[in-house]
Design a protein around this nucleic acid. Structure first.
Lengths: 210, 210
DNA sequence: GTCTATACACAGATAGAC
DNA sequence: GTCTATCTGTGTATAGAC
């Protein structure tokens, strides 16, 4: 055991698992948890539904793991930004928000339902998910607090509230509508969204960044 | 015919219809269209499911009419504001957004899904709904354009985009999370949301309203 | 692990008596 | 118009052969 053949098989299995989660991610983004069916996932990934259940024990579990995958990507980006050349916390938050919205625009963000979905209950019972969410909130909480101390974000706003605002951008319906409209480039949409989030709808009177 | 008895019966029917739509509205707000069941609606309103179908031909239709009801409330408020003592378009937009978010906080806003729901297709085929939506967009579009001309809203932003931003506030998940948290009053939450929407997360440097 | 076939549950909608 | 009982479709999940 542990032969070459065995390791190869494991790699194949890992690839299959990846493919399934990717399909699930896109379907979750397109239609939401309730409307996504295991049949669709199976079809899109090119295998029978029964085989799906050899990889994931349930629909809930598949969704949860798909979410975890995205959270891991976000966590990786957070660490990159923190160790990067741009130590400005506000800039880091902007970059992360941009990434999240971009992922949503590309149809690869499985609408994290802070909202009321039958999924959210079981998500909160899914340890790996909760662990990532907590970890992310801690890291982002630091940035937010720093930005507030530096006077880049209103210190009167509760740190949690600011965090929720950022999370919410990753499932903002405005993104979908603007994309569907078709008149605007992806970058243009993202820029406007970020402007509204951080500077509001009001005209931008260039503030000094000092 | 058209006797006293007949008119009474019609009134009773109207009341029943009202009650059903109210129940549907709350359920739509709580769980969304896909997760709401006709059994639940029936139970909550205290009648059998079969009887429901004497009032509404389908679940889709019930949802659509519930939405129309809310849109009508919004349209009425819009007219009130326009004919009111406050002719400032930006203030009117703020008031309307506040009302929408407040309704959502009270669990009476049936998450208008500009997002991807199996409902949205059939909604767009529902004439009364589309008519209201169009009417509302026209009226609000005027306010937005005026606010942009007056330099209260960034004129660089497309009017449509600003409109979508306002619509999106009525289904912003931040509202639910903040309410669930329980530490903040309804008014406080609304004030913060409005501040972020119009002035952004950045510290508010009191602009002159002139 | 892959499939076909099927069990099971549940939700939308209807039949038909009263 | 109200109900109980039922039809029908569909979606999650599993059985069992290969």
């Amino acid at each position: 055991m542990d032969s070459v053949k065995t390791r190869l098989k494991e790699q194949v299995k890992a690839l299959r698992t990846e493919a399934i989660m990717e399909a699930a991610n896109k379907l979750l983004a397109e239609k939401g948890y309730e409307s996504m069916t295991m049949d669709e996932v199976a079809e899109r990934v090119g295998m029978s539904k029964a085989s799906l259940y050899k990889f994931f024990p349930s629909k809930e579990d598949l969704a949860a793991q798909a979410m975890v995958k995205v959270l891991d990507q976000a966590l990786a980006l957070i660490d990159d930004l923190r160790d990067g050349p741009e130590p400005n916390p506000l800039q880091c938050l902007r970059e992360l928000t941009r990434w999240a919205m971009q992922t949503k625009l590309d149809g690869e963000m499985p609408s994290l339902p802070a909202q009321n979905s039958s999924l959210s209950a079981s998500l909160m019972a899914h340890e790996p998910y909760v662990e990532r969410l907590l970890s992310m909130s801690l890291k982002l909480g630091v940035w937010v607090a720093q930005a507030q101390s530096a006077g880049q974000i209103d210190p009167e706003l509760p740190t949690d509230f600011v965090l929720y605002q950022l999370y919410a951008r990753s499932c903002d319906p405005v993104l979908g509508v603007m994309k569907e409209d078709g008149r605007y480039s992806r970058e243009q949409i993202l820029d406007w969204m970020l402007q509204v989030q951080f500077e509001g709808l009001a005209p931008t009177l260039k503030r000094s960044t000092s």
